[in-house]
């Protein structure tokens, strides 16, 4: 085990101890008979019941352990809002681990000058346009087919459910491709951030996944902005899909026979 590995293990142990203390406090607070707020709540009619004052919970904790209750409450409330961010980080990291080759190929396809970047982005926009158009047209064709009576042995509801399920499958496949592209785009954005004059010196010492996670964080932060967020996410989606398509085309290019030169 190298020194870096030992440090990582030590960091993980410290993190685990800290989180375990919070989880223990949360379990203890939730197991109280007067605990009013549920762990998970979904209701279309009523708002969730308010949480108990943490001073009441603190009183039941033995001595010095009561000090952890305010921290546990704050972390709990912050983390319930951060589920989307954690999901973005987890998805990016998962693609890096499980689809490493695809991410690297997509990243390589998005390298180059600003002209290459623009080409990747425009390709992605074209893919988004094709996807939206094809999705709308297939919906129209499908609904027309169902309405005209071609609905199989189970009637309209079953035909609609089968169609919606099939579209869900298409969306999942497109989402996987977009996720690979998103990881590569985050990596590129992280490179750009660490290419800044003040950060260039430390860029080589930071592992690639961390650079990519920083890029993903930047995209997520921009996504939260009120007006710019939607446009930024659309641009990120277009760039991601464009990078994936460019990588696919670059991979299949050598396999195609070169036409004889006219000259």
């Amino acid at each position: 085990m190298r020194q870096r590995d030992a440090l990582l293990v030590l960091f993980a142990v410290i993190l685990a101890v800290g989180v375990s203390a919070l989880l223990l406090a949360g379990s203890f607070a939730g197991a109280q008979p007067e605990a009013t707020r549920p762990g998970v709540y979904f209701d279309p009619t009523r708002t969730p019941p308010p949480a108990r004052e943490f001073v009441e919970v603190q009183r039941r904790f033995p001595g010095p352990f009561g000090a952890i209750v305010p921290l546990q409450r704050g972390v709990s409330e912050a983390a319930s809002d951060a589920a989307g961010y954690l999901l973005v980080l987890l998805g990016t990291a998962a693609v890096f681990v499980l689809g490493h080759d695809q991410v690297v190929a997509t990243y390589r396809a998005s390298l180059g000058t600003w002209r290459n970047q623009l080409r990747v982005f425009l390709t992605g926009l074209a893919v988004v346009g094709v996807g939206a158009s094809a999705g709308a047209l297939s919906t129209i064709v499908f609904l027309g087919t169902v309405a005209q009576g071609v609905r199989g042995p189970f009637g309209v509801p079953a035909a609609l459910q089968i169609g919606i399920a099939a579209m869900g499958v298409v969306v999942v496949v497109a989402g996987l491709a977009a996720l690979v592209g998103f990881a590569a785009s985050s990596w590129r954005l992280g490179d750009v951030i660490f290419g800044a004059p003040g950060l260039r010196r430390v860029a080589t010492e930071i592992p690639t996944p961390l650079v990519a996670l920083l890029g993903a964080t930047a995209i997520y932060v921009v996504w939260q902005l009120p007006i710019v967020g939607g446009i930024a996410v659309l641009c990120a989606l277009a760039y991601s899909l464009g990078a994936v398509v460019t990588a696919r085309l670059a991979q299949s290019a050598p396999a195609t026979p070169t036409p004889p030169s006219v000259t």
Partner: peptide
Amino acid sequence: AFFFVDGLTVI
């Protein structure tokens, strides 16, 4: 609809 989840569960 109203939704709530304990943040520690998310963590």
